[in-house]
């Protein structure tokens, strides 16, 4: 009894310390990940072929070569960025208006809601082989898959957003003689913006996942292509470097969206869409 209570007292003191400390203990885990990686590289050895886990500094050197010394990777980075950007923008342009339309017109909702909620759990990436047949090997099939995968979270975010707008606010707007357009612009749109943004934020990692998948399956450029090429020719440090690159892209996009949210929606609390 006494030891357990002493233990829990110690634990709660530790917790208080962790809550308040200004030491950057947040970086410990990330540093720990690198240490585990390096240790793994030192301990795991393969009996033949290249090392299964290339060492951290080898991968860093490979990245440096790719980015600075030879600079050969930029066309691939641009290809990946181009695909994410075009597919995602198309999803934004279609998804937000259609979602808002769905939320504000009962007839549209009746037709689209069952279709969307049936399509939501279907992995749309399954259509990629078919699109490869129809559209060939270029950008087109990839863009279409990125578009259809990121469309639905954005669309649902906008739809739930419009549904969440308080009727009271709309009524008071109407009471002051606001036109339908003004009600939409000044009440419905701002009130649903946090939800739309949550949908967008949910769609972004999916867009990146799908881009990488399409590049891993069939492509002639892009970071995914670099990774799968290197894997086939046993250049494992390039595989790891490619993965680090794509991770950096994902983290950057996420940070950018978070920044954008702070800038645009500083007034709104965090909403999560109840999927």
């Amino acid at each position: 009894m006494s030891t357990s209570s002493r233990g829990s007292a110690w634990l709660s003191r530790l917790n208080d310390w962790a809550e308040q400390t200004t030491y950057p203990i947040s970086y410990l885990s990330i540093f720990g990940l690198l240490v585990v990686w390096e240790l793994g590289a030192l301990l795991v050895s393969s009996s033949y072929g290249p090392p299964l886990i290339p060492r951290v500094e080898v991968v860093a050197m490979e990245l440096y070569t790719m980015l600075v010394i030879e600079g050969t990777v930029y066309p691939d980075i641009f290809a990946t960025l181009f695909r994410v950007f075009v597919g995602f923008t198309a999803a934004l342009v279609v998804g937000i208006p259609v979602g808002i339309w769905m939320g504000s017109d009962k007839r549209v909702e009746f037709v689209l809601d069952p279709l969307i909620s049936t399509l939501y759990p279907v992995p749309r990436i399954a259509f990629y082989p078919l699109l490869l047949v129809i559209l060939g090997l270029g950008h087109a099939p990839k863009l279409v898959v990125i578009f259809i995968e990121s469309l639905i979270p954005i669309l649902l975010g906008s739809y739930y957003g419009v549904q969440s707008v308080s009727k009271l606010h709309i009524w008071s707007g109407e009471n002051f003689g606001a036109s339908r357009f003004r009600v939409f612009r000044d009440i419905v749109l701002p009130a649903s913006l946090p939800y739309i943004f949550s949908g967008v934020r949910m769609a972004m990692p999916i867009a990146l996942i799908v881009t990488v998948v399409t590049e891993l399956v069939a492509s002639s450029e892009g970071i995914g292509y670099v990774i799968i090429q290197a894997q086939g020719s046993f250049e494992y440090e390039t595989v790891f470097a490619g993965v680090v690159l794509i991770s950096a892209l994902g983290i950057t996009f996420d940070k950018l969206l978070a920044r954008l949210r702070e800038y645009l929606l500083f007034w709104a609390g965090d909403v999560s869409i109840d999927m």
Partner: peptide, 24 residues
């Protein structure tokens, strides 16, 4: 709190990484 301060940064850092890229 101690777990939160230690592990949450790692998870939220690695969250936006497309996991399928690790497949190769």
């Amino acid at each position: 709190a101690i777990f939160g301060r230690l592990f949450d940064p790692l998870v939220s850092m690695t969250y936006p990484i497309p996991k399928i890229a690790l497949f190769p």
